[in-house]
Design a binder for these strands. Structure first.
Lengths: 145, 145
DNA sequence: CTTAATCCCTATTGACTCGGTAGAGTTTTG
DNA sequence: CAAAACTCTACCGAGTCAATAGGGATTAAG
């Protein structure tokens, strides 16, 4: 399961993407539109900024904007930052690989083979879906309603 | 990421499966072979028993055995029991569905669509892989070594 | 029928994480 | 300089994780 922080991040970034990638938007406005507690959102955005997913402008007239185009920000990027690796075990993680503490033979581990297949399946979905593709899909739904 | 408990459960069940599905095996023997702390394993097995994944015999000469054939115990069954739903959000869980607390319109939620695709991808791997298929794969590796 | 071996169950523990709040500091603009 | 905005660190209560502990219940054997 995603953490609450992860869900908040996804919502906030979608709000930023809809707003237009290059105008800064104030934390309080993002918080309101994405329905995220204001001070908690501050921390989340700060985190996303360290990874280049968003950029900020300080001082009066400041705010946040996306750090890349919506097409270049995948769900995997976001979730990895807020909730850690997609993999079910460190030994099959692409971004945070390390041997399991008590593993005796990684190459022959039957469990690892399955978890690797699971990771690949999950990652192929989450890496292909981006803020841009999600925007299209939500616009389509709104038009249908 | 899987919890330590989840990894222990997978290892213990694989040990049970290799041992032969119908002879009972003592907790301490399973603990040793699967390299799991004995008392912690007790709790794990008790849990798995409540879900019918294993069965037990009490008293002297007692022990644990699989509750179904290895072919009928999938990785998804095990992981769901030890670590909860496979889904990244309750609103896309097959086994523990409930609406997100702060969701306004589930049908049009762009995030949900992506998480649903991710869940389906993960589940299709973990539901198709079983103790039986893992045993075959680990035997193959041992032969190759 | 007693005893030893085994599983069954609940409580406790220390470390850590989660979700959130608080408040002072820094930077920019009017 | 003052107001408005982001930045950073600390803190908090509740819960989870990974065990450990220690009886209780059940069964087989002698």
């Amino acid at each position: 399961m995603l953490s609450q922080k992860g869900r908040y991040a996804l919502r906030a970034l979608l709000v930023l993407a809809e707003h237009g990638p290059h105008e800064p938007m104030m934390i309080s406005e993002i918080a309101e539109k994405a329905r995220v507690p204001r001070k908690f959102l501050e921390q989340i955005l700060l985190d996303l900024k360290r990874r280049g997913i968003v950029r900020s402008l300080r001082g009066r007239q400041g705010g946040y904007m996306l750090g890349r185009t919506p097409k270049e920000i995948s769900f995997a990027d976001i979730i990895r930052q807020t909730d850690g690796p997609l993999a079910l075990s460190p030994c099959v993680s692409a971004t945070a690989y390390h041997r399991c503490r008590d593993c005796t033979d990684e190459a022959s581990c039957a469990i690892r083979k399955v978890l690797l297949a699971a990771r690949d399946a999950t990652a192929s979905v989450l890496e292909s879906q981006t803020l841009a593709s999600a925007m299209v899909s939500s616009r389509r739904s709104r038009r249908a309603a």
